[in-house]
């Protein structure tokens, strides 16, 4: 075994690579080419850091873990929402510049950094977990099979790639106030499926959080780096369960009476 070969035998000779990075701020900007050394074992974030350390010290970019665990380094690579720390250079066509642009759905602060406060506002609106009357205080008893569905949603690293890609808000700022987005549909679903949660958020989801605006295109699921089946395992089940509460004739009647 030689030290110049990767685990899969790929060659790791350094080569020149051009990154075409969007530089600018809220007032405007454009793509700038940077050519640096790179090798196939690296990921896009490595090369962005090399640009930062050698050619553009003020290049704004978010990152933390460099291992796909924190969800900080989201950007659009050749137009696709991805984590830069999981984008291996070997998966890009050689000799072609990699185009890196900030998430389109959120306002630019500078370069690759966007204002994602939309998501934090949506998080503030989520009615928190509330233990049920049956088991008000931990330690709770809950079976593994019953927590697993919620655990899938709790894998979310809040990278906002699903939020970025969802067409309901991608080019429609006007929908933003009334739409929490796939990440939060997953969060509501997670609470709804929690075996010991005592709150019902279904009506809220339908009437105020915009669940009805989602037309199950599954684009969110496709970009999720955690492989969370947002549409199949969160949104569709929630849509079904919302029907129970919102369109149940007995309940409707009761509601009318209460109002009347």
């Amino acid at each position: 075994m030689s030290t110049s070969a990767g685990a899969t035998g790929e060659a790791l000779a350094p080569r020149e690579l051009t990154l075409r990075i969007w530089r600018g701020d809220a007032k405007g900007g454009g793509l700038v080419d940077y050519t640096v050394e790179a090798q196939d074992g690296e990921v896009v974030l490595d090369v962005v850091h090399r640009v930062q350390a050698t050619l553009a010290g003020d290049l704004a970019v978010r990152w933390n873990c460099k291992a796909g665990k924190c969800g900080s380094c989201s950007a659009e690579l050749d137009g696709r929402p991805r984590l830069m720390c999981l984008a291996r250079l070997s998966t890009f066509e050689r000799g072609v510049p990699i185009v890196i642009t900030p998430l389109r759905t959120f306002p630019v602060i500078r370069d690759l950094v966007t204002d994602v406060s939309f998501n934090y506002r949506k998080a503030e609106q989520v009615p928190a977990f509330q233990p049920s009357a049956d088991q008000p205080v931990a330690p709770f008893r809950m079976a593994q099979v019953d927590v697993e569905r919620s655990q899938e949603m709790r894998k979310c690293i809040e990278c906002w790639l699903c939020q970025d890609t969802c067409h309901v808000i991608r080019d429609h700022d006007d929908n933003k106030p009334a739409f929490s987005g796939p990440r939060f549909f997953a969060r509501y679903a997670e609470l709804d499926m929690h075996p010991n949660d005592g709150l019902d958020r279904r009506r809220l989801m339908q009437e105020e959080r915009g669940l009805g605006l989602c037309n199950i295109t599954k684009c969110c699921t496709e970009v999720c780096p955690e492989g969370i089946k947002i549409t199949d395992n969160a949104i569709i089940p929630m849509k079904e369960r919302v029907v129970d509460v919102c369109y149940d004739p007995v309940r409707l009647l009761r509601r009318r009476r209460a109002r009347g």
């Binding site: 930062q52 003020d58 704004a60």
Partner: peptide
């Protein structure tokens, strides 16, 4: 450091 104070990792 280059640039200005706005989101400047170098600074």
């Amino acid at each position: 450091v280059e640039g200005n104070r706005q989101y400047n990792p170098g600074w």
